[in-house]
Amino acid sequence: MYYIDPHVHMISRVTDDYERMARMGCVAVSEPAFWAGFDRGSVDGFRDYFRQLTEFEPTRASWSGIQHYTWLCINAKEAENVSLSREVIAMIPEFLNRPGVLGIGEIGLNKNTQNEATIFREHVDLAMKTRELILIHTPHLEDKYKGTRMIVDMLLEDDRVEPERVLIDHVEEHTVRLAKEEGFWCAMTLYPVTKCTPARAADIIEIYGDDRIMVNSAGDWGPSQPLAVPDFIQEMRRRGVPDSKIMKVVYENPLEFFSQSRNFQFDPPDTFPMPREAAVD
């Protein structure tokens, strides 16, 4: 089955992971900007990071026949440095018209602080002024419920925000309703220990339906599984869910959401070329 991983940090993964994902049916990924494991010291550090996301990663993905898309921001962990955050937000428009840039993300909250909220609102303002989609990170563990509610509050206080152009990520049993009831898209992250398992994600689909929802691996430099979406597909198949229903969650829904971006040009898998040998040269 073809699938899209709508949230995976491939910059942290090896080329072999692209190849394994392609063999499991992955035809496209979207890669939000995130925390590198350390706080970057300057706006030029982010400029180089955005070049990597928009120039080299699409090339590397294409070697395995995978189409690569990206999102740009300064993440919530680094948002505590408000002055640097503002420099990065001012620089982001340099990249917004590059091919494959889907919007602003993954913005959000980490420890639910006032500085994080300030920078979140300023990212939303940029997205509204430049007509971008938004991809939102919700906090981990004990911070998630409070942080998700704060994020929804901030989105609702800005009447320029169109919920169907916003994806709230990392939802779990206690936050999925908050996102869906307000008309936002949402995604579940299949992550060892700290987020959702494939079985719990399948439960959430059973309870809340398969509209405006997707699943991702959020594979990164920490303990994570870039093949988590195929694990979810297998869990759904074991439950007797027909492939057409599974495909809606892992392929059609990401396509529907991404298609709202002016920079989303997608070649369906039966037409996408495999330029691997030329690219390796």
Binding site: N112, L141, E142, D143, K144, Y145, K146, R149, M150, E172, E173, H174
Partner: peptide
């Protein structure tokens, strides 16, 4: 989940 969540 709510048991392990900070209050809002």
């Amino acid at each position: 989940q709510m048991i392990f969540s900070d209050p809002y």
